[in-house]
Computed example of a mutant assay.
Amino acid sequence: MSDAFFDSLIPVTIVTGFLGAGKTTLLNRILHEDHKHRIAVIENEFGEAGIDDELLVHSEAEQIVSMNNGCICCTIRGDLSRILTDLRRKKERGEAKFDWVVIETTGIADPGPVAQTFFMDDVVAAYYRLDGVITVVDALNGEATLDKQPEAQSQVGFADRILVSKTDLVDAAKVKDLEGRLRQMNPHAEIREVNMGNCPVDVVINIKGFNMSDVLNVAPDFLTGAHHHHHSDEIGSFLYQSDRPFDPQRFEHYFMSLVNVYGPDLLRYKGILYLQGADRRLVLQGVHMVAGTQAFGPWEGKPATQLVFIGRNLPKEALIKGLDACLC
């Protein structure tokens, strides 16, 4: 995929978070505020509370509601691919004007299948690109939710940016503990404390979490300085590094096996591959069992592999041993 083609695609942001975290407040702000962006908000009808009633058309068919700030709102009553195609066709006919899409997932959902749509569905991939996943975490109830709800842990694992809401309802020490836990679970995601009712739209869009050329975020500085906590979270991450090249055939065979076996528990993985015989970096990006690679420029400095894996109960030592066996 060329950079020019990538840049021509309509960017999409997925907003996720457990029930009551503040997603609906955030989406209502996007739909009401005069932020100068033309955004199509797609709301999952299975959410616990919808966009303000006056913004929705209660019908069995998909409906698109135009807002006075240039945004539009629609609900999912069927296949996501179909509604994205409908939106694209309306845009082409001049019936809907938007340059960004924000999708709200239901509060009890793993956002993986939504993200996979942009890799697996050729019709969608020809016109849209996934920009990033935003996860909203409630500072008041976040710790308890993470303790009890595996879906909430998955949402944190998928995140490119985590927005911590309701920080005004708890003391600073509790917020710090929660953020330390989130950072331990997903060290590659940026964490921001945000009042959903006053959240700038630019905090939500243009995350570039799934930009294949965005290789600088592979190993954030806080990978080695994350807070330690006493929670036994299923979601965790690790960084694999090597300055030895992979044998291309061995690596491909092993990685396909790895994804086939652990794919359901591999929430996100991304990084730079150093393959024997390759004169440039190869960027890898994946969600569950769907992965993509793209050649990206010559090496700057000494070649090396850097891969971040985020998943559920991953056998870190076994995976590292398997990757090591693919090295030349």
Rank of each mutant, 00 (worst) to 15 (best):
D177G: 05
M1V: 05
S213V: 08
G236T: 00
G17Y: 02
I39G: 11
T85Y: 06
S2H: 08
T224D: 13
K302Q: 14
I108C: 03
P303R: 07
T117A: 02
G286Q: 12
P298D: 14
T75S: 14
D247A: 11
Y262F: 09
S66F: 15
P264Y: 01
K302F: 11
K148I: 08
H288D: 11
C326H: 06
P245R: 05
L87H: 04
F255N: 02
F118M: 01
D265W: 00
I134H: 04
T13S: 09
C71Q: 06
D52Y: 04
R89K: 15
E54W: 05
V175T: 10
K270V: 02
S8Y: 15
I42R: 10
K36V: 08
Y127K: 04
D265A: 05
R280V: 14
F5M: 03
E43C: 04
F222N: 05
D168Q: 05
K36H: 14
A61E: 15
T305M: 09
A21C: 11
P11E: 06
A226F: 05
S242Q: 07
K316S: 01
Q184S: 13
G236D: 06
V123M: 06
D221N: 06
I30M: 13
G322C: 08
R89N: 09
V218K: 02
E179S: 01
A4D: 14
I103V: 10
N69R: 04
V175K: 00
V201A: 09
D138P: 04
I76T: 11
R280S: 09
K91T: 05
K166F: 12
A226G: 08
D168N: 07
P315Q: 05
R280M: 10
G94A: 11
F119R: 06
L258G: 09
T25R: 06
R82A: 12
E95F: 13
F210M: 05
L239T: 04
R93W: 11
L146N: 00
A226M: 07
H35A: 09
D3L: 13
F222P: 00
C71K: 02
I191N: 00
M212G: 08
E62M: 12
G301L: 12
G271S: 11
F246P: 05
Y254Q: 03
G209P: 06
Y269L: 01
L284P: 06
L258A: 07
L31C: 13
G50M: 07
A40Q: 05
L223Q: 01
A226K: 06
A325C: 08
G50K: 10
E317D: 14
G107W: 07
I14G: 00
H253Y: 10
D99E: 15
G112V: 01
V308L: 11
K23N: 02
V204M: 08
E45C: 04
P315I: 07
G311K: 00
C74G: 13
A304K: 11
S165T: 09
G286W: 12
T25E: 07
L31F: 07
D171V: 01
T85L: 14
T145I: 06
T16N: 00
E54N: 13
G70K: 12
V218A: 07
F296C: 15
I108T: 08
M256R: 15
G263M: 07
W100N: 12
L178Y: 00
G277W: 12
